[in-house]
Design a protein around this nucleic acid. Structure first.
Lengths: 343, 343
DNA sequence: AATCGAACCTGAATCGATTCACTTCAGATT
DNA sequence: AATCTGAAGTGAATCGATTCAGGTTCGATT
């Protein structure tokens, strides 16, 4: 009952192993009759290619690895999905690992992918792993950074301009009459967080009126952390309440929203405006529909995978940075004070 | 700059390949000195094990495959996460594929996993793939069904009792005074959908008062389909409106909720109660916090992976069915008519 | 009839880690 | 001194798909 090998198939079909291999990989160079007999034998024996042997010989495989920062975040779910769609149309599978903002796991998955000799790696990096990626490249495994601009241009990247996004978000808050703005986000090791904050500050500085940006640090970009941050803000004396919050992503924003609603003293958007980042599917279904900076998530995944495949087939390509611009999606949570706004 | 092989390491360390292999796999049988020299050589050359060669020889790998029904659904995200956590503590990686309720992709991923000779397969099946799984098993690759009871007991499974869940949900609706209940769900190829409906019918039949269960079929279990179903319900003459909806999962429920709120003629929960299934993180953050049947999602993943590993190490184990009971989580969306209820 | 070329096929060599029958050798035992 | 023991180490054989230099066949051309 041991699995049939290509040799068994060859014997059963009465041809050589080379011919069987040709049937599988170069159907053009095989006579119709051999073709048929080999297929027949494959059917009879229930033969399935042994990927390990193929990989050993070929030195490369048809999977790519994707190291994701936060698998729980629907935003990354959408990115992965985009990459997967693109991959499957090339007959490639996506091996996927979740780092959860943990340096050890990040390394673990990169090691694993290297041992597996994946075709290439997509990664939304948490720590600074350029040296690690250089090494992968020297072994013929290219990498593309996802959702993160490659500042030094050593790798291709597909990202959204978080600085611009942060600026647009806060400009929008200022336009709708907010002046005391809290930025909720963290940890600051995550580049997107610092970029979005930087953009927020630019907007504040460019404003003709004085605008305060205050930082409310969170330990992670999750709903629970958002709720905790909300509780901290509420517990202050009333005169220290901000009149708007820009959350570093939608999960945080939804947690904040939940905390504010449960408490009930600050109304969204009447007393306090709230805007998130990512525009995940649940933002529009929130208690107060959430304004957000939309990222073209599926497109990011597709594009990253396409670039990766190009680089695998031509390693001499120069790294290129693809940057999308986020798009402001206005919903009720940032309606001007005292109005009910659009739903 | 070709990657170093075990032979290069052996040469560099001045020992044989067998010794290097022993250092890697049986550290006890090697002298301290060889040990050190080999490690030194590995360091110097940047040697990384070639997984393909190892797998070819060993006939098995240290990855498991997980075929997921709907990667976009946070519920499955949580399940995968649970499995991944458990796996990583055993030094095992999870290769993950999304079928999106598509028979072809389901088959594609199973083929891929078979070629890759994964250690085992976790699958939340869409179509009837028992024969396919039998074949995998005959090749030494066990499978565990996730979120689906194995009716014939031929495979181990980890699931939640959807019939009981459906019953509990509808009993709750009846208790809060609802009598004209719509069940929103589909396609009916998905076992969970039919089970939840069956449970709903049991609750209706057991009720002392006459209770109507009406079926509103959807094409998929998504937010968009939920919104569409909502629109269809609203468009009816007012006297044919149900006074409660039991949605087959939370995504549907959130879509329904969105449609009802935008329309504004039916208030939740005053005119119509709404309950979902899964209790995903966003249910509590919804416009009207959503009642739901909670599934222990992370636990399902962990348990499935643990059982799978047990079966890989002892293939003679008899399949066992693990069933969790869902838990009713009451929020505002099912408050009794005319009350405001708990938040 | 001889020659040629295209189409098709063959089978040994190869990839790199693991395994295991076999060797080596220092020290213990007789 | 001869023999034995066990720890440590060796290296050829193995896994299965792919590749490619070389073979065979056969109809077309001269």
């Amino acid at each position: 009952m041991a699995a049939a090998s290509i040799r068994d198939v060859a014997q059963h079909a009465g041809v050589s192993v080379g011919t069987v291999s040709n049937v599988l990989n170069r159907p053009g160079e095989v006579s119709a009759e051999s073709m048929q007999r080999v297929h027949r034998a494959i059917e009879d024996l229930g033969y399935v290619r042994n990927d390990a042997a193929r990989k050993l010989r070929a030195g490369t495989s048809s999977t790519v690895g994707f190291v994701v920062l936060d698998g729980q975040n629907p935003f990354f779910g959408d990115v992965v999905r985009g990459a997967e769609d693109e991959a499957s149309s090339h007959g490639i599978a996506v091996l996927y690992g979740n780092t959860d903002e943990d340096v050890a796991r990040e390394r673990l998955y990169l090691d694993l992918f290297e041992e597996q000799q994946v075709r290439g790696v997509l990664i939304s990096p948490y720590s600074d792993i350029n040296p690690r990626l250089e090494r992968l490249r020297s072994r013929g495994i290219p990498a593309v950074l996802v959702d993160r601009f490659s500042g030094d241009g050593r790798f291709s990247s597909v990202s959204v301009d978080s600085v611009v996004g942060g600026r647009m978000a806060v400009e929008h808050l200022i336009e709708t009459g907010r002046r005391r703005i809290a930025f909720a986000g963290g940890p600051f090791e995550i580049r997107q967080v610092t970029d979005r904050l930087a953009g927020a500050r630019v907007a504040a500085e460019n404003s003709t009126e004085p605008v305060d940006i205050e930082v409310v640090a969170t330990a992670a970009l999750t709903v629970a952390e958002g709720a905790a941050a909300g509780a901290r803000i509420i517990s202050r004396p009333r005169r220290e309440w901000p009149d708007a919050i820009f959350a570093a992503n939608d999960l945080l924003a939804l947690g904040l929203l939940q905390a504010l609603i449960v408490d009930g003293r600050m109304l969204v958007p009447e007393d306090i405006a709230l805007i998130g980042f990512d525009d995940i599917a649940f933002a529009s279904a929130a208690a107060v529909p959430l304004s957000s900076m939309r990222q073209p998530s599926g497109m990011i995944g597709r594009t990253a995978l396409r670039i990766l495949l190009e680089e695998t087939s031509d390693p001499s390509l120069i790294p290129r940075q693809t940057v999308f611009l986020p798009q402001l999606v206005v919903r009720r949570s940032t309606a001007a004070k005292g109005t009910s706004g659009e739903t």
